[in-house]
Every structure is written in C-alpha cells, then in structure tokens.
Design a protein around this nucleic acid. Structure first.
Lengths: 250, 250
DNA sequence: TCCCGGATTCCATGGGATGGAAGCGGCTCG
DNA sequence: CGAGCCGCTTCCATCCCATGGAATCCGGGA
C-alpha cells in the first residue's frame, strides 16, 4: 500500500478509463493506463470488462476504441433525438438564409455541448465541432443556456473562475449577472469576440413541453455584421419554433 | 447470502444498469433496478456513480436518462466519424439517384447497426432507424458484413439459431455458408424478403485502409425491382468509393 | 538467438461493495 | 386529518472480490 491518496472505487476507475478516450482516438493499453492513472494490470482487467460489455472494442491492431454499443445507447436516447429532429428544419432554414454557422447546443455541467452544426464554406473560421464542449460564459449559446439554467449553476460558473479568452470575454461576476438579466428579459443572448477573434454569436433558448430551457440555437458570424437585425430575429424565431415543435405552449 | 447464482462483479452491475436504457427512454430507479435485476439499494448506489460521472443524468422529475457525456464520447469517436464523413456524399448520391432507402451499417457482435440512413417518402415501408440493430443473417447489409467478418462470427451466428422471419429468410447453415461464398466472390449481397415483406436489399462491403471490411452500404427497395441492375451497381460503386475515401488501395 | 517493451496472467490480502432493513417524504383514500 | 402505501434514500456489519506487484508471455528487431 504505497499511498492511499488516490484511492478510487471501482466505478471511478472504470469511468476514468472511459475518460481516457475523451480526446483520444485509438489507444493502447499503456496509454489508457497512463491517462487514467491506473496500474497496468488494473487497467487491463477493467478494460477487459468494458470490452466484454461492448462499450469499448479492440481493433485488429490491438488498440482500444469506443465501441458502437455506447454510440447506440447515446444516439437512441429519445429526448435528444426528439430535440434534434425538431430542430433540423429550423437550423436548415437559418443556415440557408444566412450562410453562417448555425448551432444547436445543450448544457452539460458548466459547458455548452454542440449537438448539431451547419457551416458554410465562407463563414468565419471556427473550430466548434459536433460534440465539442465550450465554456458557458464565453459564447452566445453558453450565455443563453446559463441565463435559464437552474439556480446554482451561475454560482458554480463564478466559483470556477471563468477564463478570459479575449478582451471581449466577460468574466466579471456583476457584469455577467447583469447580462443574464438582460438575456432573460430579451430572450436573446449576444456575445461579441468573447471566444473567437472577429466573430460574434447570437443565441436563443429552446424550451420543452414543461417549459424548461433544454437547448439553445445560435448563429456565429463576422463581427462587422453584428448589428444586422436578421440574426437576432432569426435565432429567436428558430428558438420559438423548435420549442413549439417540442410541445411548448407559452 | 440468499443465493449465489446471480453473482456479478461491480462492472457487470454497472453495465447492466446502462443496458436498462437499451430500449428505455426515461426510467425511474425502480424500473432500472428491475430491468438490471439488482436490489434497489444497489441500483441506487451504482446509479449514483453513473450520475456523478455524467454518463447518466437525472431529469427534473427524478427520472434517469442517458447523459450527453456518453453521446459526446461516442460521437467524437474518430474512426466512426471518419467513416460517416467519407460515406455521406456516396449515400446522398445513391439516395438521389434511386429515391429508395439507403443505409450505412457496421457489425456489432451478431447484429448490423445502422449508422446512417436516408429514406424517401415513397420508398417501401421499413422500420430501420439510426442506431437500430438487426440480425446479420436476415438483411443485405448483415450478410455483406457477415461474409467478410473475422473467422468464428459465422459459427456464432449458426450457434445462435438464426430466426426465420419470413419464408425468404435463410436460416439453413449450408445455404447461408454457400451464400457467403457467393458474396465474397461477387462483392455484393442480395437478400429478398428476408426480414420485410415486399422488400429486398442489396449491399456492398466497405474497407478501411488496412483492407478490413468495416461497414456496408445498402439499398432497400420494392421486391419487384429486384432485377434492375442499377441497385447492385450503385451499392458496389458506393462501397468502392467509400473504401477509397478511407484510404483503401486494392 | 537474444533482448526489450508491451501485454497478459497470477494470487494473497484487506478494504470496499453489498443489500436487508429502517427511515423518509409525498400522495391517496377513507 | 390521519393512516397507509409506495418509491426513494440512507445506514452499516459482514465478507467477497478488486487490487496491483511480480512473474510470464509474446512478437519483432538486431
């Protein structure tokens, strides 16, 4: 028993292994053991469990990768499927009428996760990809999600010391809180050069049948176009439309 | 210690909980415990682990659902992403030129899992949806995947006593084995009224850079059109094209 | 053939998983 | 209004099985 400071229970170790794939593609046993900070033999045994279940598969070259089982489990998840299906036509409309990046995102903890994305070839450069996770305070969607998040989330964001990416990033508690109030009042969140130089984003919330804000739609475009009213209008209408499609009756 | 016949280790129990969501959407603790065949308190504790990790989330009404974390993990999986991206244009072509159902599927154990699907409004009725899993022996894609699967898979299929869905379903070992040989020779699999009345499906394998068959493309159409050459030709060309896009050099 | 790095297997030990039971909270019905 | 019920949560004494260091295996490069 060398040290007891990193004792974790079985589940945590299993999950640590899954987390090793967070930004990794195909990993060898040793890589996984290292990332999960587990002894080789332990990692080996637990990987065996994952593989037996099918959550992780082993390719012919001996490397491990996330299995289709997990994908199936996640993709068939009815509520997010419903959301994506309801949103599709609205996102397409938005995209076709603006030609800019169009996103659908949901909140996961203190991040905004991108469920769907459509992007034009000559839109402003942006790294956001499906499945990406960006901080709540630094994007339009993030702020829209944060403004309507359950109590406590805002405090968590502040406690986590929001990072300043660019001069335009709002990190001050009072400024951020005030912005939340404005977003709740107007129903639209706009953030200018908060994360990406030369870009701004407008976002609107999406509600489900119970009235909870479950997602947000956004457009990202060149910063010079920030004052054109079509963007804010577009996301607001899309937000309402998707909400209605989900059964929300105001 | 009432009985020791259903002892399972921690990992198995955790996974049994995940499996409870297989065909379920939002579940209560008791439902999960029942489906996973676990005592309530155990299910409760392990669910807690899942929730803490984020693989399962708890909605405002107290029900549990698969979390976005799992979705992210699965959707960012590079190899299947690569496959989907490579396949997209070919599937669209196929779909636009035929107007029938077009599928991309991979093998998971003894099933074919549908990764991508495009379907016309007036195509033959079919229940297959993204994330579905159909038996290998009873569909075009399934047979294409089975024909090129690693040794042992065919035997497993036979051992699992393939089910006869319709008179057209091939369940006999010799007939199935012979068909595999033909598929390997011709590079195309066709199955007529094996799973769905009035429908036939043609499929072709997709290879990755190492030459392994990693997926299959298929078209499902009305059975009367089974002799039109465009379908077999189409999937074969699509199969080759996607393989090439994945780096396969024959 | 030998070597080396990575993967796999082994096994004695003790700490964490276990699940029955009790406690809790909200809802219904008499 | 109180009793009863149902589903969820918490507790904790017992004991099982997860643990990980070490030995072994395997494959490929020299």
């Amino acid at each position: 028993m060398p040290r007891g400071d990193d004792d974790r229970r079985v589940a945590e170790k299993l999950f640590a292994i899954a987390d090793a794939f967070e930004r990794g593609d195909e990993l060898t046993l040793s890589e996984i053991a290292e990332r999960a900070r587990l002894p080789l033999s332990t990692a080996h045994r637990l990987l065996g469990e994952w593989v037996e279940w099918g959550g992780i598969t082993r390719s012919s070259d001996g490397r491990y990768r996330v299995g289709i089982k997990l994908w199936r489990l996640a993709v068939r998840q009815p509520s997010s499927r419903r959301l994506r299906i309801a949103a599709k036509p609205y996102l397409e409309d938005l995209f076709e009428s603006t030609g800019e990046h169009v996103h659908l995102a949901v909140r996961e903890g203190l991040g905004a996760v991108y469920l769907e994305r459509m992007s034009g070839v000559n839109a402003v450069p942006s790294i956001t990809d499906i499945g990406s996770r960006l901080p709540l305070h630094a994007t339009g969607v993030g702020q829209a999600l944060l403004a309507f998040a359950p109590p406590g989330v805002f405090e968590d964001v502040i406690a986590a010391a929001p990072r300043r990416f660019l001069p335009g990033t709002i990190v001050d508690e009072t400024a951020l809180r005030e912005r939340m109030v404005r977003i709740r009042a107007s129903g639209v969140a706009m953030s200018v050069e908060a994360l990406t130089k030369g870009a701004f984003s407008v976002a609107a919330p999406v509600r489900d049948a119970t009235g909870d804000v479950v997602a947000a739609v956004s457009i990202i475009a060149h910063v010079e176009r920030r004052d054109e009213p079509q963007f804010a209008l577009g996301v607001r209408i899309a937000g309402r439309g998707i909400s209605a499609a989900l059964g929300y009756r105001p």
